[in-house]
């Protein structure tokens, strides 16, 4: 793909980091505010899509490499299943850490309240695992399809 005009590229340079931060905010606050792993991961992947459309390729961004994102995707799903197995003493998917006092273990107050970050037990950790999987998976799809498009264009011009 050819890069878009200079106006679009300049705006993208300012905006894409803010979109990534907003996506991570949705992932991390999944147990307090609307949203969660799937939604925040999709928002973060949309920043990758914006970069891809405006610059024409993701080669200039060193942190979005296909192999690295593929590794992140697999590790996200593995972490999710491992957290599910963590509660196997009682049942599969038992919330072991909730109300235990340790990691994410504070007791949440009942009713309408502003919310405490350190509550929720296993739920925020699972949100992070699923968010990692979704953002890297959608990033991998973008990278692979963009590479295939380059290949097709090169072959048509021969």
């Amino acid at each position: 793909m050819s890069p878009m005009s200079k106006i679009v590229r300049t705006i993208t340079k300012f905006v894409y980091s803010i979109i990534i931060i907003f996506g991570f905010y949705i992932i991390v606050h999944g147990h307090l505010t609307p949203g969660g792993g799937f939604q925040g991961g999709a928002v973060t992947a949309s920043a990758f899509a914006l970069l891809l459309v405006s610059y024409g390729s993701l080669a200039s961004k060193k942190f979005v490499k296909k192999d690295f994102l593929s590794f992140l995707e697999s590790s996200g799903l593995t972490l999710f299943i491992a957290l599910a197995f963590l509660g196997l003493g009682t049942t599969f998917f038992y919330n072991l850490l909730a109300n235990s006092g340790g990691w994410f273990g504070n007791v949440s107050s009942v009713g309408i309240n502003p919310g405490d970050m350190n509550t929720g037990g296993v739920v925020p950790l699972m949100n992070m695992a699923v968010g990692l999987e979704v953002l890297s998976g959608l990033g991998v799809i973008l990278l692979v399809m963009a590479g295939a498009m380059e290949f097709t264009k090169k072959k048509e011009n021969l």
Partner: peptide, 17 residues
Amino acid sequence: AQQETGTNNVVTSIVFD
């Protein structure tokens, strides 16, 4: 849901717990 899982977001507590 708020007492058992400690999450303010009841939808997330259903989806992930």
